[in-house]
Write a protein that binds this DNA or RNA. Structure first.
Lengths: 146, 146
DNA sequence: ATTAATAGTTGACTTTGTCAACTATTTTAA
DNA sequence: TTAAAATAGTTGACAAAGTCAACTATTAAT
């Protein structure tokens, strides 16, 4: 395999890092860190999520997570419910307030993405999404080897 | 434009964030932060770079940058040269030591990318890189609107 | 000549993240 | 069945990363 391929791959990574950086800016200007938004995301779309789940999927430190959860609890965004089967385990979920707060963030992100995509021609939009699907499909199989 | 497009775009963003995260892990396990590696990158590939340049291109805080540069100077990775035209300005560059250090990081990253790409068929590799070029082309024009 | 702008530094601070030790509980296996 | 190992989560102490405003020095603008 050619070095040129590696170079191209890395160039794309830098390019897309800056795209993601621009999109994340909004979150960073909100009152929440990326980790906090991600936690809300997981709880909003998931079910019966525990701290351990978040630690695994986010690769976040458990001490740090514990504190973030406590903060959110104080703000009444997250509620805890101890498992009856295994009392070490605590199920986390968003309160109504928490859901509302996340929806706000999520919608702003949607709006921001829409404002980018709306400028694209039908053709370009299709090409863009097709390319994304393609990349996802090809790289998913490789993910394990990283 | 459909909500489905927005959703797909954001799904890809999350996917690619995790790819980048995996690739960046190595840097984070090195003795340098992402910001530090990025600074070395800019100095390695650029010419006549000043702190102001880095502040603009990286959107980094100037106080923070000032300290990082000082650290690197202490390690003899970066050298400063005051501009004769505008004595407020200091040109930054990597020392021989600094270049060697960056090359090490850069090579490790290359190796890591190679280990991913080598598992792909010729066809998939071509498709992957084509898709990346496509995305880059389509989104570059939109970058301003973000 | 003043005033405004720019480049970079410094101090004080906050946020974010890490590490290891700890409690409490459950699972494993002799 | 019980001792040891594993798992879930918390806490304290700390380090790294990043932010903000005030500062010096210099240059550009009116």
């Amino acid at each position: 395999m050619e070095n040129k391929s590696i170079k191209e791959f890395r160039t794309f990574n830098r390019f897309y890092t800056s795209i993601i950086g621009l999109l994340d800016e909004h979150f960073l200007n909100s009152n929440y860190s990326l980790a906090e938004v991600r936690i809300m995301f997981e709880l909003y779309y998931g079910k019966n999520i525990t701290a351990s789940d978040l630690i695994r999927t986010m690769s976040i430190d458990k001490g740090y997570l514990s504190r973030v959860i406590r903060q959110f609890e104080k703000k009444k965004f997250i509620k805890r419910e101890r498992s009856s089967e295994d009392t070490r385990v605590i199920f986390l979920s968003l309160t109504h307030e928490g859901k509302k707060e996340f929806q706000l963030l999520d919608k702003t992100q949607d709006d921001q993405v829409r404002s980018i995509l709306k400028n694209l021609s039908e053709k370009d939009l299709t090409r863009l999404l097709t390319s994304m699907t393609e990349i996802k499909k090809i790289l998913t199989q490789q993910l394990i080897s990283i």
